[in-house]
């Protein structure tokens, strides 16, 4: 399990953090328990600079072109995109439901905001996820401390700005603890307008 340390090459623009891309796809026949989730999720690459990000990202399928039940995750290096990870266990996420056709553009915009450190919430951001589903697609941003309302409000307001969301967009927050309890990512959320 030898891992190379990823760092910016000479002349590249370093990112505040290294980020790792993950991909997961649910096999419909299997239950969505923790074990099968962990088996279905794959690390696909880590980037340390703006240039490395674009090189990697340009070769990825756009999320809007994915089919079935699949997710792209972009998380700070060292944080697994799982509720149980040490960095996530007291955290939660904002959820934005997107009608079909919008996922690729919103995914790119949320990534650029995260890589560019636009959220101004210290170390609180863990990562972002785009979830491709049958009826709608879902964008999520995970933070470390679900109980910190100053942080979660600031993330919500930054999201509205960087994604240019209409004022009536429904924003939903769910703690990972609640997700663990009901074994669901997107049901029973707290809705704010």
């Amino acid at each position: 399990n030898r891992r190379k340390t990823i760092s910016p090459a000479a002349g590249e623009h370093p990112l505040q953090y290294n980020y790792t891309f993950w991909y997961s796809r649910r096999t419909p026949s299997r239950p969505a328990n923790t074990q099968s989730y962990e088996q279905n999720i794959r690390q696909i690459g880590t980037v340390a600079s703006v240039e490395q990000f674009w090189k990697f990202y340009s070769h990825l399928v756009r999320p809007g072109d994915l089919t079935g039940h699949s997710d792209f995750h972009l998380f700070k290096e060292g944080i697994k995109p799982m509720w149980e990870d040490e960095a996530n266990k007291n955290g939660g996420k904002w959820i934005i439901r997107l009608r079909k056709g919008l996922a690729s553009r919103f995914w790119e915009n949320i990534i650029l905001a995260m890589l560019g450190e636009q959220f101004m919430v210290g170390e609180e951001i863990c990562g972002v996820v785009v979830s491709i589903r049958f009826q709608e697609d879902i964008l999520s941003i995970w933070n470390k401390t679900a109980s910190d309302q100053v942080t979660t409000s600031r993330i919500r307001d930054t999201l509205r700005r960087v994604l240019n969301l209409p004022p009536n967009t429904i924003m939903e927050y769910k703690t990972h603890n609640d997700s663990l309890k009901d074994n669901s990512s997107f049901r029973n959320t707290k809705i704010t307008l």
């Binding site: 090459a9 002349g11 590249e12 623009h13 990112l15 703006v50 240039e51 890589l115 560019g116 450190e117």
Partner: peptide, 21 residues
């Protein structure tokens, strides 16, 4: 330390720089 902040336009401009190709 200092935080490395990039705006959207800067990041998009880097996409077309020779280093990112």
């Amino acid at each position: 330390g200092t935080r490395i902040i990039y705006d959207r336009k800067f990041l998009l401009d880097c996409r077309t720089s020779p280093l990112a190709r």
